Simulated assay, not measured.
Amino acid sequence: MSSHVSNHAKNSTHWMSRLLVMPSVSMLLLWMIIPLAMTLYFSTIQYNLLYPEDNAFVGFENYSYFIEDPGFWPGISNTLILVGSVLLITVVLGTLISVLVNTPFWGQGIVRILLISPFFIMPTVNALVWKNLLLHPVSGVFAHVWRFFGAEPVDWFAQYPLFSIIMIVSWQWLPFAILLLMTALQSLDQEQQEAARLDGAGIWSIFYHLTLPHLARPITVVIMIETIFLLSLFAEIFTTTGGGPGYETTNLAYLIYDQALLQYDVGMASAGGVVAVVLANIAAFFLIRAVGKSLTDHK
């Protein structure tokens, strides 16, 4: 009798918790489904803001035009190069800097704050600082350094536009990687490291056999979170190069913006948005599997 009452109480609690969560879940679903449904709808009609009355159904024609757009394949390749390069820079430098900063030294707290602070700067402000104060070919800091050594200043956004974007975005996201990896290092077993040192293990051996395996899980999380945000990178490109010269810095997000707000073609931009969502979900699928494998391997 008592077990029956206990099960009944558990079921009541279970259903009550579901009822309490239902409003927030419903709002979240509406917040996601309604924009997605509208995007799917607009992607199947011919809808240009200059001719709003002409909205004939065209099926998959917008998708075909978007894929055949001259900026589509450069947008895909630039997106992959941007995401891959920033991930490589932030993970490698983030790991090395985190290990260095984890060693006790005078002023360690101030250095940690300075390392993390760039992450809290807005992307647009970050891009403007790099564009006008650092990379400007006449008055920028890099130009003065070049002249000091007798070299000709580089017009970064004209000669190396994609590399310039990679530098800007890497500087913005490197503190995020440092923050997560530095936090993970706090739980590293110091006694195990000390025992390895007493056994004659060098710095590289300790890093490779102890530190790096310990950081495998947080590195995977850094890669997953950064990839999700980097796939939608826009502000830095809009503020500095405007997707140019040509399509050299145009990624998928900027190409969709160009279709929607510069060419006023909402139908094709919506088709591009659906394509971007599909690609992002494919990337998220593999990233989630990688995270799951990392968590399983390090239990």
Rank of each mutant, 00 (worst) to 15 (best):
Y247D: 11
F42Y: 13
P35K: 07
T240M: 11
W171M: 09
K10W: 12
G202L: 09
Q186F: 10
S2M: 13
I34G: 02
L262C: 04
P175N: 05
L162N: 02
I67P: 06
L133E: 12
S294G: 12
L230M: 02
T240P: 10
P175I: 08
A280D: 03
I33H: 03
L188H: 01
I67Y: 06
L287E: 03
E61Y: 09
N7H: 04
Q263H: 13
G292Y: 13
M268W: 04
S77V: 15
I178A: 01
N48P: 08
I206A: 06
V58Y: 02
S232P: 08
G59C: 03
G71M: 13
A177S: 08
L82F: 04
D199E: 13
H209V: 08
A9G: 01
I165R: 00
L252M: 12
I168L: 03
V5S: 15
L255M: 09
A56M: 04
V86S: 01
V221H: 00
L231A: 08
G273S: 14
V129N: 07
W204C: 05
V21K: 04
G84K: 01
A269L: 06
T44H: 05
A216S: 12
T124D: 03
Q108N: 08
E226S: 09
V111E: 03
L100I: 06
L93A: 11
L233Q: 05
V277N: 03
A195G: 10
